[in-house]
Simulated assay, not measured.
Amino acid sequence: MAHGRLDHPPARTPRKVDEPSTAEARRPSSFALEDRRPPAADHSDVLLRRAVDTDAHAAAEVWLRSFAQALPTVRCAHSDHEIRDWFAKVLVPQQETWVAVAENTVVGVMVLKGEELKQLYLDPAWRGQGLGDRFTALAKRQQPDGLTLWTFQANTSAQGFYERHGFTAVEQTDGQRNDEHEPDTRYTWQPTGHPS
């Protein structure tokens, strides 16, 4: 599973990595399509925990693999080096970043920034193993008053996943405000009985 886009500009725009991009509020989700079984790990042994500095590189690698697998037709607006730097300097130290760890290996990552579910990425080998469900439940516990997220319109797998988890599409754009310039959809989740 994958979800989200970058919170920093492409390399061609000189700016510090920790400055927000103009597209920061618009981070589409993606969702890995491969359905392989996880490598020799028991699903019950997967730990969800807050990320620490030493998780940044592994979390970035999960993001890179998942994005490539889930969105082969979408051009990633940033280099691998920029993604790794973004995880090390922005996501892990400055935002609420969680990792899924199996046998001492990071196999998933989720990032919350207030009520926005900014990133949700699973190693492609772990798709369909319930980690996305666990991360989504965790996000709802962390933000019980509601969540919002963006996903690419081309990513029908992610849309179906979030809709199954009670998210509703509330806005579609042409993608001109996101880094990839890919049409996107904003989703929201409100707990039952909560005013919109």
Rank of each mutant, 00 (worst) to 15 (best):
T54M: 08
A77G: 14
T136W: 00
L112H: 04
H8I: 01
T188Y: 00
Q142I: 07
G132I: 00
P144H: 03
E82P: 00
E116N: 13
T185M: 11
H3S: 13
V52T: 15
Y187F: 15
A70Y: 00
G175R: 01
D85I: 06
E61N: 09
L71K: 02
P195I: 03
S21E: 06
R127Q: 13
A102R: 02
A58H: 07
A102D: 05
D53P: 11
H43Y: 10
R12A: 14
T173D: 13
I83K: 01
T73M: 07
L64Q: 09
S157D: 11
G175D: 03
E103I: 06
A68T: 10
S21Y: 07
R12G: 08
G128A: 10
Q190N: 09
L149H: 03
M110H: 02
A137Y: 04
W86L: 13
Q153G: 12
T156V: 14
L117R: 01
R186W: 04
L6P: 01
P191C: 06
A41F: 01
E103D: 15
D145Q: 14
A70G: 15
E34L: 11
F161V: 10
P20E: 11
C76I: 08
P14R: 14
V111D: 01
L120H: 06
G175W: 00
R141G: 08
L33V: 11
Y121V: 06
G160Q: 12
E82M: 10
S44W: 08
H57A: 15
Q69A: 10
V111M: 04
R65H: 13
A125Y: 06
E19M: 15
T168I: 12
P195A: 09
A51L: 08
A70V: 01
A77I: 03
T136D: 02
G132Q: 00
A100G: 13
P191W: 07
T22Q: 13
E116K: 10
T97S: 10
A25E: 13
T151Y: 08
P124K: 05
A137I: 07
W126G: 01
N104G: 08
T173S: 12
V111Q: 02
P39M: 09
S66C: 07
A2S: 10
L47T: 13
H181Q: 14
T168L: 12
Y187H: 03
R127E: 13
A23L: 03
V99M: 09
D45E: 14
R177S: 13
E61T: 11
V170A: 03
L122K: 04
D123H: 15
D184Y: 04
A125D: 14
V74S: 05
V109D: 06
D123Q: 01
D174I: 02
D179W: 04
P195C: 05
R49N: 06
P144A: 04
W86T: 10
A139V: 02
P72I: 02
L71S: 12
W189T: 01
P191N: 08
D7M: 07
